[in-house]
């Protein structure tokens, strides 16, 4: 952990990057990025990224291809360390250099391939790497009970049996298993990378339900998506990246799809013609 000043000293003087400043929820953000930058040789992939995520909040990260979304989530999840700026977790300055570091803080990252073992059943996948034991033996009964409860809390109803192999599940159900895994890990922040990219309409609805369930349980979600319908359905705030910078952060309640598209494509907001209530 880096020796740095506390978060409190900086929280008030954060300069807005763009003209649009969203009114942040009150309290200490779960994760705060301050002036985070990352470059690969001469390529400056991320510049001065400011981002706050509060507990139980869904923040959508949008932006065109190459805007830096993937670089940013990989920085947060510790695939690589940022080379500028500071990260704060629950107000404390932290250094995330390795996926282990982010996992220890309570950040669960779900990549598109989900990383599930098709030959293992739902319970086995959910507990892989953190099995409950009863002496030297696996405690299947306790794991099955906990898995059932977790899925029920997430309102996952379409799974026939939690002892069926994950390979037999649909795309949305696989997402549900991955999310339930994150919940079991007691993750405080779940990063979802394009969770609906390969899904049909009903499966997408199921995943969005999961996001809502996570939010209701007080888990923060950072949702990367190209689909603005999905974003507007579940997100509280939208942060748009443009060429490696934060183009703007807007509250979903205060904006519309047109504005969001504008942010994504031009990196700036034109004056709003008819301010909404």
């Amino acid at each position: 952990m880096a020796a740095d000043t506390g978060a409190g000293a900086r929280s008030s003087d954060r300069a807005p990057v763009t003209t649009s400043t969203a009114a942040d929820p009150a309290g200490t953000p779960l994760l705060r990025l301050s002036k985070v930058g990352k470059s690969f040789g001469p390529v400056q992939a991320l510049t001065d990224i400011d981002l706050d995520i509060y507990p139980g909040e869904v923040v959508a990260l949008v932006g065109d291809n190459g805007a830096g979304k993937s670089t940013l989530i990989k920085t947060i999840s510790g695939i690589w360390a940022p080379d500028a700026g500071q990260e704060f977790w629950e107000g404390r300055p932290v250094t995330i250099r390795h996926p282990r570091d982010s996992a220890a803080l309570g950040i669960a990252t779900m990549y598109q391939d989900l990383a599930l073992s098709d030959n293992l059943d739902i319970v086995q996948n959910m507990f892989l790497g953190r099995e409950l034991m009863r002496g030297p033996l696996l405690d299947e009964t306790s794991m099955e009970l906990a898995a059932r409860k977790t899925l029920a809390d997430l309102s996952v109803t379409t799974v026939r049996s939690i002892r069926q192999p994950v390979g037999s599940l649909s795309g949305g159900q696989r997402q549900a298993v991955a999310v339930a895994r994150a919940v079991l890990e007691k993750a405080k922040l779940v990063i979802m990378d394009e969770p609906t990219a390969a899904l049909g309409v009903s499966q997408t609805a199921m995943v969005l339900n999961l996001v809502t369930s996570l939010k209701q349980q007080g888990v923060a979600v950072l949702l990367i998506s190209h689909n603005l319908n999905d974003v507007f359905a579940v997100a509280d705030r939208i942060t748009a990246l443009y060429l490696g910078r934060v183009a703007g952060t807007v509250r979903v309640a205060d904006t519309d799809t047109q504005q969001a598209v504008q942010l994504i494509t031009t990196g700036a907001l034109a004056p709003v013609s008819h301010p909404s209530a």
Partner: peptide, 29 residues
């Protein structure tokens, strides 16, 4: 687009009631 709301309890016993949400049946076990 709103999120759908379905029965919120998992069925511990008894046969599954509703078919999987709109998947082609060939995909399902």
């Amino acid at each position: 687009m709103s999120t759908t709301s379905e029965a919120s309890d998992i069925q511990p016993d008894g046969p599954p009631v509703h078919p999987d949400e709109g998947m082609p049946s060939a995909e399902r076990p």
